[in-house]
């Protein structure tokens, strides 16, 4: 399978660990269901990034599923957290949103869906560790502006719409600063109860 996904490696790394380009995400160890949903979304044009849309356009769905499973099974070590240039108050705001959310603005904690260790949950919720702040900011921005969407109920769009520009910067910086947990595998399906319905987490 590694030879069949060689086309992915210049941007995502040999084992999906990511590359020096801060906008290309780590794929390794994310739940296969999540990766498959993204491959389908790129193939169908729902998620727009022309180099990805182009590569996947004529590949069969079962093959995309295999590709998703391949990267989900990879376990390269998480990268060391990069030094952050944001201020202490910004980092604290990020920590608050990630771990506690902001009930007054109906913003759930990131950890309430993405797991107490932020390693995600099978089959559809991705881990948030090992991603660079630029990538997280760009994705949260895309959810806010509606250029990234997912199956209804599109919970990430609802959450991101409540975030300000400053919230996004803070969350991205805090997530990138987290050290790798000993076990970075996603949680089993149903390991915890989600705060609200999520179209990506099928029953």
């Amino acid at each position: 399978m590694a030879a069949r996904v060689e086309a992915c490696t210049p941007c995502h790394g040999k084992d999906g660990e990511g590359t020096s380009d801060v906008y290309f995400p780590r794929l390794a160890g994310k739940p296969a269901g999540y990766l498959y949903n993204q491959l389908l979304a790129f193939k169908n044009g729902r998620r727009k990034y022309p180099p990805m849309n182009y590569l996947l356009e004529y590949l069969a769905d079962p093959y995309l599923q295999e590709m998703a499973e391949h990267f989900a099974e990879q376990r390269p070590p998480l990268p060391a957290s990069p030094a952050s240039d944001v201020s202490q108050p910004v980092m604290q705001q990020g920590q608050a949103l990630v771990t506690r959310g902001d009930p007054a603005r109906q913003i759930p904690a990131c950890g309430s869906c993405h797991g107490p260790n932020l390693t995600g949950m099978e089959p559809g919720i991705p881990g948030l560790l090992g991603l660079r702040p630029n990538y997280v900011s760009a994705q949260l921005g895309a959810w806010r502006y509606g250029t990234r969407t997912a199956k209804a109920p599109d919970c990430m769009q609802q959450v991101a719409a409540r975030l300000t520009e400053a919230d996004v910067t803070a969350v991205a910086a805090y997530l990138a600063s987290r050290p790798a947990p000993i076990n970075n595998a996603p949680g089993q399906k149903g390991a915890y109860v989600l705060p609200f319905a999520c179209g990506s987490q099928s029953d």
């Binding site: 030879a3 069949r4 996904v5 060689e6 086309a7 992915c8 490696t9 210049p10 941007c11 380009d21 180099p51 590569l55 590949l59 069969a60 079962p62 093959y63 295999e66």
Partner: peptide, 12 residues
């Protein structure tokens, strides 16, 4: 059904 692909080198 499971074609091999050529990597994009635009970034490299």
């Amino acid at each position: 059904p499971r074609p091999y692909g050529m990597p994009p080198f635009a970034g490299l």
